[in-house]
């Protein structure tokens, strides 16, 4: 019972960390960034390199953020910017980039499955249940990410301008807001978050050139169900992630793998705005 509750909580935290970057980009730019999976892979390899260099595993997070941000800048400038008027094409082009990133990593690191060192080992005792310390640590980490992003959006001039662009881009431009710059910065931040998410999941899975892709579809579905709100993303992750855990333990792990995608598709069929307010 307690183990299951912890499973739900930690699964939701992982999903939240994985989907925030995608949500940010979708909210501001109305574009689904299919390079998200590739950028996560990039973050996973940042963790691997950190391990190989013998550095503190926590350092992988800033390293991943840096790699992701730089890649994101290049992607926004050369690929995404010409495609704002063609959102379906943007999905395809960013998917192509995911392939490119995967192949570049394969050429550099080989195709094999590798493992990065986890920043936390062992288990913790929670209400008499011993549970993976790292999975538990992901809950505060996800909350910090969410809180940091909320603070950025709610508490800074850039955040205010970003929210303005999300709500009404024409109006924002008419008030002197450089929406092109806001988009650029948003994509950069979203890419950095994707790479951080890639680092965060490495202790739970292996590091390989295709590691980000399986996460992509679930993250994408969660974002569609959540609209552009960080709060409704939290709700979606808890509800759909919880459903995934329950189906996996009580029915079958294979069906569990489908739960998020299928439930999200059905929710959107009944309520096109998903968990978003309006």
């Amino acid at each position: 019972m307690i183990a299951q509750a912890l499973d739900i909580l930690t699964t939701a935290a992982i999903l939240y960390a994985v989907a925030t970057g995608l949500l940010l980009v979708f909210g501001v730019m109305k574009i689904i960034n299919f390079a998200h999976g590739g950028l996560m892979t990039l973050g996973g390899y940042a963790a691997l390199v950190t391990t190989q260099l013998g550095l503190n595993p926590w350092l992988a997070i800033p390293a991943a953020a840096l790699f992701g941000a730089v890649a994101g800048m290049a992607i926004e400038r050369f690929v995404v910017r010409p495609l704002y008027a063609r959102p379906l094409d943007a999905i395809l082009a960013t998917w192509g980039l995911s392939i490119v990133i995967g192949q570049l990593i394969t050429i550099a690191f080989g195709r094999g499955v590798q493992f990065a060192q986890a920043p936390l080992d062992g288990t913790l005792d929670v209400f008499g249940e011993s549970y993976s310390a790292y999975r538990l640590a992901l809950v505060p980490i996800a909350l910090i990410l969410g809180a940091g992003l909320t603070a950025l959006l709610q508490g800074t001039r850039l955040g205010l301008e970003t929210r303005a662009v999300i709500m009404n881009e024409d109006l924002a431009r008419g008030l002197g807001i450089n929406s092109g710059l806001v988009r650029f910065l948003t994509f950069t931040l979203g890419s950095a978050l994707a790479a951080i998410a890639g680092t965060l999941i490495t202790p739970l899975s292996s590091v390989d050139p295709g590691m980000g892709v399986p996460w992509l579809v679930n993250a994408f579905m969660l974002v569609l169900v959540s609209g552009a709100s960080l709060v409704s993303l939290l709700v979606s992750c808890l509800v759909l992630g919880g459903a995934q855990v329950l189906v996996s333990t009580h029915l079958s792990p294979v069906l569990g793998g489908l739960t998020i995608a299928v439930l999200a598709a059905i929710i959107l069929r009944i309520r096109p705005q998903g968990f978003a307010r309006d």
């Binding site: 690929v79 010409p82 094409d89 395809l92 980039l97 392939i99 490119v100 050429i107």
Partner: peptide
Amino acid sequence: PFVWQLIIGIVFVLVIVAFP
């Protein structure tokens, strides 16, 4: 093997962006 996939990926992105 990998170079070929890489080339396909790059050409694909290029076609989508520049020659839809």
